[in-house]
């Protein structure tokens, strides 16, 4: 199987979709000649030209609005929002327009748009360029939300997002772009709403997203040394959520840790914990642990940044709390 970086995997999905389908195009800031601030669309303008790899003015609202308009006209646009922090500027379009048109028109129109964006700490980008805001969008009926953690997943999920008839907010993590992973020869679309069990275990389930999937796998390795068998599950699609897989895993292990880089409080993990406690109440042998960032703006100083966001050792500590081996 070929090996791609996460960055190449995103690009591969875009390129293959655009080759196959005239309706697919990308729009964003500096995505053409510059290839995007993260280099994801590097080289694409050479193949597809500036019409289909469109540089946009520095206005996230205009990018989102134009993409929604094109989607309403039957195209399948992929809008790049350079940093997810800037989703704030496009939120009116995404939340009030994209999420609502299909419902308000009684199904007469659909909005098959993807808002690709990236964020995340680990490289000192400061408080305004590294937030994890997925929880804002999973709260909006009418939106699908994806957060992929591996090259294989990001490619297969982006493909499915492009061909989903609903607006999808598609989160990528900045520090995952260089990671490498095997991908199938041909793109295998991954259905939205299906979790992936990365590692099977018997004692505790860690449900993690984004960068924390990798941190959790590290923590699971270490826990194994202490005789704790850890299952790691990545929901991959946050909305709709694959409750069945998560609940089944926790019914098997009887303990759960929910881990994400976003701020713990009111985070996506809180919803997962609520789902688990309700559907697996009689199977829980310990309180559900949550791992996430501290309730603080992200610091610029690397030491402070590392202090605010969670790492493998935080996941490991939570794992140990659930089995009473703190």
């Amino acid at each position: 199987m070929p090996e791609l970086t996460y960055r190449e995997a995103v690009r591969d999905a875009l390129v293959q979709a655009m080759r196959e389908d005239e309706d697919v195009f990308v729009v964003g800031e500096d995505i053409a000649e510059m290839g995007g601030s993260m280099g994801v669309t590097a080289g694409m303008v050479d193949e597809f030209g500036p019409e289909r790899v469109r540089n946009a003015p520095i206005s996230e609202m205009a990018i989102a609005g134009a993409a929604i308009g094109a989607a309403l006209q039957g195209m399948r646009p992929v809008a790049e929002i350079m940093y997810e922090d800037f989703l704030t500027l496009a939120t009116e379009q995404i939340v009030n327009q994209a999420a609502k048109h299909r419902y308000m028109s009684g199904g007469q129109v659909s909005v098959p748009v993807v808002f690709r964006t990236q964020g995340g700490a680990g490289w000192s980008p400061g408080a305004q360029h590294a937030q994890q805001l997925e929880a804002w969008f999973v709260h909006i009926p009418g939106l699908k939300v994806v957060f992929a953690s591996t090259p294989e997943d990001v490619r297969g999920l982006l493909w499915s997002s492009i061909y989903d008839d609903n607006p999808v907010v598609f989160f990528e993590h900045r520090t995952l772009y260089p990671i490498k992973g095997e991908v199938p020869e041909e793109i295998e679309p991954i259905p939205l709403g299906r979790a992936r069990v990365h590692r099977e275990g018997a004692d505790v389930t860690v449900i993690a997203t984004g960068r924390l999937v990798h941190e959790s796998l590290k923590a699971a390795e270490e826990a194994e040394g202490d005789g704790i068998s850890v299952e790691v599950v990545d929901p991959r699609t946050l909305q709709p959520l694959d409750e069945e897989t998560l609940v089944a895993s926790v019914k098997k292990t009887n303990r759960a840790v929910v881990a994400h880089e976003a701020v713990t409080r009111m985070g996506f993990g809180a919803e997962v914990a609520a789902v688990l406690q309700y559907q697996a109440f009689d199977w829980l042998d310990a309180p559900i642990e949550r791992v996430g960032a501290r309730f603080a703006p992200l610091a610029f100083a690397p030491v402070m940044e590392a202090f605010v966001v969670p790492h493998a050792e935080d996941v490991l500590a939570a794992i140990k709390r659930t089995v009473g081996k703190e």
Partner: peptide, 12 residues
């Protein structure tokens, strides 16, 4: 206080 602390699983 008479309340027995037990996990939901243990109770079941």
């Amino acid at each position: 206080n008479g309340r027995i602390k037990a996990s939901p699983l243990a109770r079941r």
